[in-house]
Design a protein around this nucleic acid. Sequence first.
RNA 1: UGGGGAUUCGCCAAGUGGUAAGGCAUCGGCUUUUGGUGCCGACAUUCGGGGGUUCGAAUCCCUCAUCCCCAG
Length: 346
Amino acid sequence: MTKVYVGMSGGVDSSLTAALLVEQGYDVTGVYMKNWTQDLPGMKCPWADDLADAKRVAVQLGIDFKVFDFENEYKQKVVDYMIDEYKLGRTPNPDIMCNQEVKFKIFLETALEDGADLIATGHYARVADGKLLQAVDTNKDQTYFLYRVTGEALTKTLFPLGEFTKPEVREMAKERGLFTAGKKDSQGICFVGQIGIREFLSQYVEQKAGSIIDKQTGKVLGQHDGAIFYTIGQRHGLDVGGGLPYYVVGKDMEMNEVYVTTNLNDDALWRPELTIASVHWINETPQPGEYQIRVRHRATLIATELSFNEGGSVNLHLGNAERAVAAGQSVVIYHDDVCIGGGIVS
RNA sequence: UGGGGAUUCGCCAAGUGGUAAGGCAUCGGCUUUUGGUGCCGACAUUCGGGGGUUCGAAUCCCUCAUCCCCAG
């Protein structure tokens, strides 16, 4: 009997994932990954509640349940990475790093060592022949967050939810009477939870006043308390009013200055061409040519001409310019339904 | 110091006798397993202060204050 370790977060998706695998005849073990347990000012970390929920469902399903403690790894590989990137003035995507380093690496390794044959998670994605495919529910597809997983890891991974839509998942969870059937979807960076990225960062970074400058006139419009807290395309949090809305179009980390404009067509806001580094291919390296890309989770796929640069970076010529693509964000590349990999915007 | 103009929510800005538009910002919510975007809702009993005219004024008159422009 195939032994599967299911990552259970205490949410509906992973709960149903475990239930489906049991029904499919696998020998299922539920695993709660303890990645972050710190409370933050103004927000209680929900890990204890999530753990309790995951455990309840495991009991309901009559499966074994374990807790894997990855707090150190998570702090180093995900949180520190995120903070370092922000300090460089970039805008990282910690959840992608979490999948690369924790769920599909340490968790996978630990599970295999512990006797598992396969692992499973509640991601909306599909695997076929070691390839990563978009979920049937394209509206909910989460392959964007998974492009840094290796093809080898995928051969040992099951994504049972990839065949269903979110409403179906909720319905099935309800039919089975799972404790978590009615639980609200989590959102935002898992560990940051309810508080914003800004509040989180200010725990680790010193706040320093700087100027908000109008790119068009050069006038100082106001003050902010750290260029690190702003990202390109951002509108809110500037506290600058009068006439049209202002959007962030750039920043200077050295000078601690944030540049804004009311011009929606500003060149800095639109990227018809992207260069990505730290490129990762799930399977084999693709040939230059026509592909589709996605610049953020849930964005529609857009046609792209892919070519390779000297030094390994990849150049992407977009069919339509994308708005507010920040350095540090990920571009994920698709060939029809297959997610073939991607890279990080330079 | 003469002459002219201005003063409406944190910001921009309608409104010239009939009982305070709108936009930005902000706050709250929705959307979303990243940042961000977007959407919805809330947001001046009050119009620089004080008098007066009028049934009734932000809108007319007087006066004080502040700011701006031209003369010096």
